[in-house]
Design a protein around this nucleic acid. Sequence first.
RNA 1: GGGCCGCUAGCUCAGCUGGCAGAGCAACGCCCUUUUAAGGCGUGGGUCACUGGUUCGAACCCAGUGCGGCUCACCA
Length: 530
Amino acid sequence: MSNENRPKSSHWADINAEKIVREKGKKEHYTCASGITPSGTVHIGNFREIISVDLVVRALRDKGENVRFIYSWDDYDVFRKVPKNMPKQELLETYLRKPITLVPDVLGKCESYAQANEKNLEALLPIVGVKPEYIYQASKYRTSEYADGIKKALVNRDLIRAQLNESRTTDLPADWYPVSVFCAQCDKDTTTVTGWDENYGVSYKCESCGNEETVDLRKTPAVKLPWRIDWPMRWAYEGVDFEPAGKDHHSEGGSFDTARKTSLEVYGHEAPVTFQYDFISIKGRGGKISSSTGEVVSLIDVLEVYTPEVTRYMFAGTRPNTEFSISFDLDVLKIYEDYDKCERTYFDKPESPKALKKWEKQARIYELSQVESVPEVMPYQIQIRLLSNLLQTFSGDVERVIDFLGDVKPEQIDKLKAKAQCAWNWVKNFAPEDFKFSLKADGVALLAVSEVEGKALKSLAGKVEQFMDSSTEKEFSTHLYDVARELEIESSDFFPVVYKALIGKEKGPRLISFLYIIGKDKLVSLLGKY
RNA sequence: GGGCCGCUAGCUCAGCUGGCAGAGCAACGCCCUUUUAAGGCGUGGGUCACUGGUUCGAACCCAGUGCGGCUCACCA
């Protein structure tokens, strides 16, 4: 998108993009980084980091800048704890203290535990339009690509120790080395560095297996930097210009704080532009996400209920430093309504300058919510509530819903189907019981009704047959009330009977329009039998 | 103890590169002679936490106070 003729955007992604260019100066290309540890299922909270970077990357590209978007998998971290939701707990326990890249995938699909978690996410990200360049730390470290970075840390060990001590309660000992070592014999990090030759040689002793040796940083896979030093080393190595971080990193004395100093004073690289993003919470999944069960909500769970666009919308429309919930309860309906409204706004650009200002903000959020580019034709507008009811009436058959709607353009079909799939998933798995219904099948045993109730249903069937085709919903409603009046039943008694006959419940969707959705033939067959 | 964030209508929040204080829900009124947290029209509702400062002008910027939340100080 070219925004030459548009006023300066006030969207947070654009503001950060400008900040990057301002602080880093005009560059051939800008490097934006994101990264996490695949030491467990990557959850939706981690996703906020990735999507936040993606949004800023897009903002930079929309300004005409070249951007390298890298995503670092910290898969040379130590395996510290066996997640409770994993099978083969005893087997996994034997891999504690080893790097997660060497832990087997107990689900048996991938080469390693780390890779299983990585592939899960990598397969999903393109669905929401996120396409970074992946960097695997384990591979980088194990092929000694970072040898010089590690050496630099060793050379500056006193400086680094002082930097870290500034924010520590207990000082690091004088014989501390800024590296950690995975024993070449048993792979565990239960090692103590015993010496360094002022060059590439590091000596260590393993407390688990007793192994003692001196390794060459240029040849060994064993040595890595601890997090607070690893981070700034990689900023310098990749030339990172922008990287946000969670609030746990962004305190004074937190890792971003010390990494900033290390980056500048040891690696000669100005720390990236950054911001802090807040955590996100989950609403409406009952006890399912309690951390004690080890079950987490991840991107795939969100995509079950939210389309890729609406998923992006939740993040693009919320400032990063604001906490928000991803809901699986009735709020889902509201989120869709909000998105649809934003979408209609986008396709209805106002004339007056004042209205235009408000429009700009919504329009920008809409653009950033798209997986690729903004569609040429406005997607089919249908309230999610109505869509859910149609799906329930037609037992989840999207084709019949589209037939019923009648005016869906060919280019609108794909998105409508995706939305319908999400709506259907939501109804099946998360909608409150009151919301759910299914139309009775033909030939189901008749409901036990009183004589007058039976007459009423029969009479309704007659009215349907006689008037439905030729009446509007509003006109037909008088016939509905006639039925009750003619048989002297209170309408408040009559309606539940109709619902029972149709869906076996006392309540349901607004009756008049519901009857029209069901259609004459089906109604006659369901009601005429009484 | 340090840092960060929040405090705007009854509720949830938007508005924050300063320019007439907003939305949804709730409430109230009228309409559709009744319906999933239904629909339509309309109305009321505010010391923008507090104190001071900058400014022609502050919810917004600055300094401070109070209350609430998160986070760091072990590892990542």
